Simulated assay, not measured.
Amino acid sequence: MVRNGQVKVKEARRPEVRLPELVAWDGGGLEPDGDYDGLEFADLDLAAADGTGARFMDCALRRCALDGARLPKARFLDAVLEGVRGVGTDLSGATLRDVELVEARLGGVQLHGAVLERVLVRGGKVDYLNLRAARLRDVVFEGCVLVEPDFGGAVLERVEFRDCVVRGADLTGARLTDVDLRGAAELGIARGVEALSGAVISAGQLFELAPVLAAHLGLRVLE
């Protein structure tokens, strides 16, 4: 969009999660294809739990351990995940719509093929995030640290990075539309720099990315 001679980037629409009064979950572990509505999962060890295809609507997961938890094709709708932690959580093919992920500490989480719409990732740290072939629309990464996130083949539309650190991102084959990277405190692209054609960066970031861009273009920079 061009307005008054300036290019305007469409802003991401943030989730508006208004949880009802929640009921504490006391049913132990998760179940495949389980249907969870209006529940709070707090301080639970859900390591290696199998919630394949489960639906979480108007739910909150707070300070739960998700190491090795299996949640492929799960659906999180109008949900809050706060202080969750774990390594190797499987959320492949999952749907996250109107979700807040707050102060998470995750490693190797699998979200390949997932759909994220109106999602806020605020604070925390996520290492080796796998978003290959995922679809992200109206997603905001804010004040978080992303180490070697993999966006290979993903579709990103109206995605913002604000006050966050992005290290060693892989954008190979990704398609970006209205992706705003200007607010990233640190921006490192390891692969797929050509995908940035659908993004907006600052002049300072352009300078920092110059070596990667030069390598991609086959430029030799000599003194």
Rank of each mutant, 00 (worst) to 15 (best):
F41D: 07
V87P: 08
L77E: 11
S92Q: 08
L116T: 02
V23E: 13
G83I: 09
F76P: 00
V121S: 01
V126H: 03
P149E: 04
D90S: 08
P20K: 03
F151Y: 12
Y36H: 07
G53K: 04
A69I: 08
L66T: 09
V99Y: 00
A74G: 11
D26G: 15
L91Q: 00
V140L: 08
G34C: 05
G152S: 15
L106C: 04
F76C: 04
G108F: 05
L101W: 03
L81V: 12
A74R: 08
D43F: 12
G107Y: 02
M57P: 09
G28H: 09
G107W: 02
D43T: 09
A94M: 05
V87E: 15
V145I: 10
V145L: 09
H112I: 07
V87Y: 13
V140S: 06
G123R: 06
L46Q: 07
L146N: 04
R63V: 06
A69M: 12
G143W: 07
G88D: 03
V126S: 03
L44D: 06
R122P: 00
D45A: 09
L120Y: 03
V119S: 01
G153C: 07
L22S: 06
R105N: 12
V23N: 05
V147Q: 12
D58Q: 13
D37A: 08
L22P: 03
D43S: 12
D98T: 14
G123Q: 05
V139L: 10
L129C: 06
L61H: 01
F76W: 07
E16H: 15
L136V: 05
G51P: 10
